[in-house]
Design a protein around this nucleic acid. Structure first.
Lengths: 345, 345
DNA sequence: CTGTTAGCGCGTTCAC
DNA sequence: GTGAACGCGCTAACAG
């Protein structure tokens, strides 16, 4: 009922709708006095421009979409928080799409990149298929990848290989040589339907660190399973029940490292005296569990992704030639879950 | 460039735009043959109706807004997951507004309830001021409160008083009489800027359980602080350092219970032999920490909120008279963090 | 059943 | 500087 339109305002201020529109979009071509009159009419009537009409007219939506896989994982949450925080200052709406199944991913990839829905897109972790990248380009929807890269898209990411390498080198420096690795499933098939690449990248870093130190790789020291504490718990039990259990475990996430901590507790391994454990992410609980880990700037990465996207949104596809791939720094956070291996092991 | 409109489709199918629109909105008034022709034209040209135009024409946005305070807390996340999940099946967009400061809350309360932005609103935990409720009603925006109640709004919630009571009665039944309570700050002033009511409700439940068992209440057994593991850790240290420490602690959230578990570990209290701890929420880690807790149906509550909202959206403000207040069941989840108190304590 | 036309509310020419 | 008219893409009401 109380739907004031631009026309009502115009009438009240005794001007044409064009003038009101100009005031709204602060065009310089309005006399100061007229502007005042319009402004006060707007205030009086509590007029708010209708976003949809504006969108239709402009061909913009004033919303940015965020596609996130398993947005309930602590690391994803923290990234989303960064995104929301940066976005809230801009007036852009924030549309969230959660992906937990292939089916849903395909639906979203098919539906989301429609110009009428969003002005820009941030995709977290997921690898966009070329068909999507192409559609996005054709529709002129700026996109930035977060925690993932693609030759044709801007992105904000970290070097997972390097991060894993830092973690494992830390263990090697302490004197460990039997180092286990617990990760999500590295596979391009059914066991990894969403095609996450992080587990493999961190695996490569793990292998690289071992290779540099001339430590032979033993496949039985690498255990894979779904990304969850309870599975990591099981994997760690396996690892620690071997004849020659590892003296240290690198888990590809803090969540999984916590599973390993519990397994150690179950089997009576003292951490770190008998078993060192290092995680990845530095989620909040890591600090209170005294978990040594690799910190990645999750919140900041969300903020940076938004900044990057906004830049693209502003210069309107002018210099789309130069791609930006920004790599954020990683940091080893030393706590009490790692130390030198037990003597004679 | 590839923006096919309804007119292009009409031309290709040799019909008028009206017919295409009818097919789109599956009106019965179209001959099967004609419908086929239009459908195939749509498929051929990969036509997707422009959502904004549709919204403008219909006066609907096809988006629902969700206002959540500290959406990164595990319990909130779980609710959001329920909401996202229920919403994804409907075609409604999901716009998230995170509130962490009074300023931001006020901004959001002022800006969000504009008909042009959202068709419906879900507010989590926050207490909407009357001015907002009134504006919402005037603008005809159906709203449901989640985990909160208001005399004029539909809601989905649980009985926090009852939940706390169940928790504390469990401890009392085990034989405990010195029972500590760790909660967020109960205050209407600066320390609780967002005016959360849950801490007080659970406090009332705590008191009620004590009173029923004729156990005197000792104020020094109630510690309050910001909602975070690390603060709860400190509060638990305080509690356990008293001359006569409690034999059991009820924490108003699992997150805080975990802080208490750590404090027990730090001070060398065996859980549960020397100290029972019970939490609230049943978040994922609770299971792996063997934490006894009160489970509330977080995911389901999100789903139910969406369902309730959709109902309102459909019957278009016809029978807005009968308010719906749905209370979801709570459940005591017994694990290994509680047992009878040590003998002679 | 179907084509045509008038809005939805705003931004944007174009003349004045 | 400013007002009037047109168009964004779609739905709905109206003739046929």
């Amino acid at each position: 009922m109380a739907n004031v339109t631009i026309r009502d305002v115009a009438k009240r201020a005794s001007v044409g709708v064009g003038t009101v529109s100009r005031v709204l979009n602060d065009s310089p071509n309005v006399r100061a006095e007229t502007r005042e009159r319009v402004l006060s009419a707007i205030a009086d009537m509590d007029f708010k421009p209708n976003a949809n009409a504006r969108r239709l007219s402009l061909g913009k939506t004033h919303a940015i979409g965020v596609i996130a896989p398993y947005f309930t994982t602590p690391s994803c949450i923290e990234r989303l928080r960064g995104i929301e925080s940066a976005l809230s200052a801009t007036g852009y709406d924030f549309s969230l799409f959660n992906v937990e199944t292939i089916r849903r991913r395909n639906e979203i990839f098919a539906e989301v990149p429609r110009v009428e829905r969003i002005d820009g897109l941030i995709i977290i972790t997921l690898v966009p298929p070329d068909s999507l990248v192409e559609r996005l380009a054709r529709r002129g929807i700026p996109t930035v990848l977060l925690d993932q890269s693609h030759p044709k898209l801007n992105n904000i990411s970290t070097d997972n290989i390097q991060g894993a390498r830092i973690a494992v080198e830390h263990l090697i420096t302490l004197g460990h040589r039997r180092i286990g690795y617990i990760s999500d499933v590295i596979d391009d098939g059914k066991a990894n339907p969403l095609q996450f690449t992080t587990p493999r990248e961190r695996y490569l870093g793990y292998r690289a660190a071992l290779a540099s130190a001339e430590i032979p790789h033993h496949p039985h020291l690498h255990k894979q399973g779904p990304h969850a504490q309870r599975y990591a718990y099981g994997l760690a039990l396996d690892l620690l029940s071997q004849d020659e259990p590892p003296t240290a475990i690198f888990a590809m996430s803090d969540t999984q490292a916590i599973g390993a901590l519990q397994a150690a507790q179950t089997l009576g391994f003292d951490v770190p005296e008998q078993l060192s454990i290092i995680g990845y992410d530095d989620i909040e609980v890591a600090q209170y569990l005294n978990l040594t880990t690799i910190r990645q700037p999750l919140f900041e990465s969300g903020v940076e992704a938004v900044d990057l996207l906004l830049e693209q949104l502003e210069d309107d596809g002018s210099n789309s030639a130069d791609l930006i791939h920004r790599t954020l720094p990683l940091e080893l956070v030393l706590r009490q879950s790692t130390c030198k291996p037990p003597i004679g092991s």
